[in-house]
Design a binder for these strands. Sequence first.
DNA 1: CTGTTAGCGCCTTCAC
DNA 2: GTGAAGGCGCTAACAG
Lengths: 352, 352
Amino acid sequence: MASVNLKRLAQELNLSISTVSRALSDSYEVSQETKDRVRALAQQLNYEPNPYASSLRRQRSKTIGVVIPEVANNFFSLAINGIEEIARYNGYHVLIYLTHDDYSRELSIAQHLASGRADGILMSVASESLDFSHLDILKTKNVPLVFFDRVCEEIATANVTTDDYDSGYKATEHLISVGCRSIAYLLVSSNLSIGQKRMQGYLDALRDHGLAADADLVVNGGNEHEQNVALIKALLQRRPDIDGLFASVESLAMSSYQACQDLQLSIPQDIKIISFSNLEIAALLGPSLTTITQPAYDIGKEAAKILFQAITKNRPVLPSHSVELKSELIVRGSTTVAYKPTPTANQPTEAS
Amino acid sequence: MASVNLKRLAQELNLSISTVSRALSDSYEVSQETKDRVRALAQQLNYEPNPYASSLRRQRSKTIGVVIPEVANNFFSLAINGIEEIARYNGYHVLIYLTHDDYSRELSIAQHLASGRADGILMSVASESLDFSHLDILKTKNVPLVFFDRVCEEIATANVTTDDYDSGYKATEHLISVGCRSIAYLLVSSNLSIGQKRMQGYLDALRDHGLAADADLVVNGGNEHEQNVALIKALLQRRPDIDGLFASVESLAMSSYQACQDLQLSIPQDIKIISFSNLEIAALLGPSLTTITQPAYDIGKEAAKILFQAITKNRPVLPSHSVELKSELIVRGSTTVAYKPTPTANQPTEAS
DNA sequence: CTGTTAGCGCCTTCAC
DNA sequence: GTGAAGGCGCTAACAG
């Protein structure tokens, strides 16, 4: 298949390659007539500029990389939607990389992205990551980087987060207000800042309401559902006084349900559960689950906007560009909660 | 920032660019000593080959494009996981494009992808698409294309689907077996082949069990939740005899729930609902929802494998490469259903 | 075993 | 208004 490129167009039109190139980029120094001729043929032959040649020449790829633990998770799915929206609006392409919360993957992905494949990177760090030197090379190569949700405090850049502390506080307060006196906190990885901030809110809420914090009530889970279920079951058997569970991530809410089911504990009669979650179907669970919903779509959008600010204006991403969005506590049962459909792309938001 | 490229390495080592290039690609015609020297410096300077230069030169981008309606949907999220897994295993990168079920977006995405940006494309067509000429240009440019889930019969290529007809049949049969006699079928877009195949299963199951098919019981929804709720409410009010709802996509199950809630109909006492769904939290809903779960992760993997077969062996994707996977009917309440965690990446599956 | 040369397709000075 | 030439960084044929 003879690919149609500038050379081909130039030959057929008896023009030079440079004139064709200029005509297609609507340069002011090309006559209207030539432009029309060029464009007509380009359309006819389905000419599409070779993006790789263009990227090589201009030293920008019109591509951003998105590095996340997993996409089979409502939060990240929604975030990607927001990211893709803004990227598209800016004429950019989106590369997806999944770490599966594995440090070595995150490392090799970061290394690769230092190649200039992407003009900027949006990232949610893997829960396993303790060492962040792999992200330093991105910094030294001047690849703009914005963290969202799972941020890395060690790297000086912009973070887009939700009000983790506040919502942790409010969630705990909610459980207290509905009568819980012995509330356990479940987190997935103690080295993720989100888990820690939410926990601080939990601890402060307990203290402010005269409840004792107890290290035994904090359970540190992992990425394995079955193991988490076992941990929670052990917790509930060890501490039959527990009447509330605060799951700091969605998957732990699942595990909690499973554990309660296995132990024949009924929700919310015996135990009340509150969780961070973006699963819309949770709305259908009725009064049994109260959730804290993060504005995932907006988080994605905001993060992308900050990144594009840096890319297009060719300036670094600064920590001062960070944004904190508000999450929403959704109490079901007492109040009716309407199903919130996924925000679809309407008019592109102004990327300013 | 002086970027580190082959030239730079060659200069520092007093070697020619080509030798350095060969050393890094572990060519047999370079001495071990030279290789070691080159690799040492490359590592020290964090050399990463410029992917765009390489793509331009080799005429292959080591990138695939994934075009889907939306990612905030458990099915596609899981599929992407599978796709990324296989892509990574093959050393490929994944570009994501979302159509939002909008024809014009799908058109422009397809047009762009004809540029050679991707070596192959995985696609689930938009529900709005009626005309598929935009996909022809991909064919004429010899870009390998594999459809998954939402296929396009008009284009001769491989499709990866689930047993839509069979599962539609079985789902209907299930409702009949639990006593339903007046079952409505909800679909999202009548021009999607999946909706039609599932419907055929539904119709045949009714017929085989001596129940009359009734055009009034088939409701054609759209992408708007609120409108779908209204449609379903109208249906239920018009036909109070309805005792079963078959939602052919997840979102319609949501709408159905909402509609029943609004009308104070209890599930599953008054009305039984069965739905295609991949939301794992659905397992927590207890006996109220029976689902047909597609092996989304495997569908993504299979589709990617077929694509890579074509790419690496440089041969066309043929309709005969199509694969049909089995979906699973999960009945809750009577049988205990364990929470199935998202399949995470273990060993990469052999891509053969 | 290593070097020289010639592009991949595009953009962009510089010349006319 | 148009053309010629150089080079982005890499690879691969051809020499030696």
